[in-house]
Design a protein around this nucleic acid. Structure first.
Lengths: 224, 224
DNA sequence: CCAAAAGTGTTAGTCGTACACCCATGT
DNA sequence: ACATGGGTGTACGACTAACACTTTTGG
């Protein structure tokens, strides 16, 4: 690599995340409103430019803390965006991540050095966002569907347990379909990554529902 | 973004690809041998540094042509690698791609401006590679398995048709399992992205086998 | 004691798996 | 004519989907 070739100059990496939650049956994503140029005053996904001395996930967590105050959440990689003019400042390739959290278990900063607002937006009411974030968010929402169908990603929404009717509503909200109560329960239990507790909690009914929790990763045994 | 912050400087993007083929029942990957530093003389995956005026896929295709002579092949994104010291020259984030081709339908350049050799290596006989390419290749091979199971990626291995026993052997080679002939045929047909032709070809038997081909993407109709 | 959601079990249909026989051809 | 792989159909078991009744509690 001829380091001095000007074609290698002025490139940077954006790290950006779509953090989802489900609030009373509605899937929402966390957006911030930008204080500075470019895209001053516009809503955007949380993220920023990577430093040259940090890994992607660390840079993203730094940005996330700076712009929302959120710490210690699980994020997984989603997609990559390389359109040449996707940033007006310089050539930036973006790496996108997704996460899902219980919004009631964390507090967000409404204003920071770089933001003037921060809020949860239902997926069907997303404003025009900075950069190509509308596209990134759309892809992220699609991926979220795949991931909750095929992995135990929802464990991060329920670090301390959930009831069947509760998590069923979340699946139905995110996937946009509805399931038979009895079959849903059987299916989820058959996957083997959740377990019953002896606690109960009222959800929508008067009869209390059992609380289940996700097994720790090392408790999940494969078939062989 | 404060463009002058030195932490944003000296970052680059690597694009790199694992191009697979299946040769007489053996899955192989295309490697080049480097002519220049860093890693001079070592084998490596095909790839290089992205220019600031090109998209990932275009940069990768440019590198691919420069270093192997290969043009016009299908590549799909695989993974991202961001270890800070993964390149000794400067901080480079790598985006990896995978592809699969019929090696008999293309010719490769044994030597170029930047390479001294180029060859197909069986996956169980991979030498120590430049950069973190061993890790990238391992991940790519895993992803290849997923993709041929879940998508019609093998269409790119067979642009002009295939016979059942032939493609079955490819699946078996890549996945490392073996299938019942009758069930394999039924399964593949049931997916609905291949169609019969009226041509035949001899494969291993004396009786000629029917040639099938992948439907064009727009011929594949969904269930609804 | 009634309304409303939570919890459970059984049956039918569908899909995947296992398996045996006939067919077309080259030698 | 026969050996070799290519092509097809059927029966069984496993999983998925549809569905109805009992239980627990708050009001």
């Amino acid at each position: 690599m001829e380091v001095n070739n000007p074609k290698y100059r002025n490139q940077g990496i954006h790290v950006v995340c779509s953090i989802f939650t489900v609030d009373k049956g509605v899937t929402k994503v966390l957006l911030i409103r930008r204080k500075n140029e470019p895209f001053k005053g516009m809503w955007a996904l949380v993220g920023g430019a990577l430093y040259n001395d940090e890994e992607l996930i660390d840079g993203l967590k730094r940005e996330l803390k700076e712009k929302t105050g959120i710490e210690n959440i699980h994020l997984e990689m989603a997609n990559v965006y390389s359109r040449i003019d996707r940033s007006p400042v310089m050539r930036m390739v973006a790496i996108s991540y997704i996460g899902i959290v219980d919004k009631n278990k964390l507090s967000i900063l409404k204003e920071t050095l770089k933001t003037v607002d921060c809020d949860w937006f239902p997926l069907d009411r997303i404003p025009k966002l900075a950069y190509d974030h509308n596209e990134i968010l759309e892809d992220a929402a699609k991926l979220l569907k795949e991931r909750i169908k095929k992995t135990d990603m929802l464990r991060y929404l329920y670090p301390s347990g959930f009831t069947m009717p509760e998590i069923q509503k979340v699946y139905e909200s995110i996937l946009g379909v509805s399931f038979d109560r009895r079959n849903f329960r059987k299916k989820l239990l058959s996957l083997g990554f959740i377990k019953e507790t002896n606690k109960t909690e009222r959800f929508e009914g008067k009869k209390p529902a059992k609380i289940y929790e996700f097994k720790k990763q090392n408790e999940i045994k494969s078939i062989f």
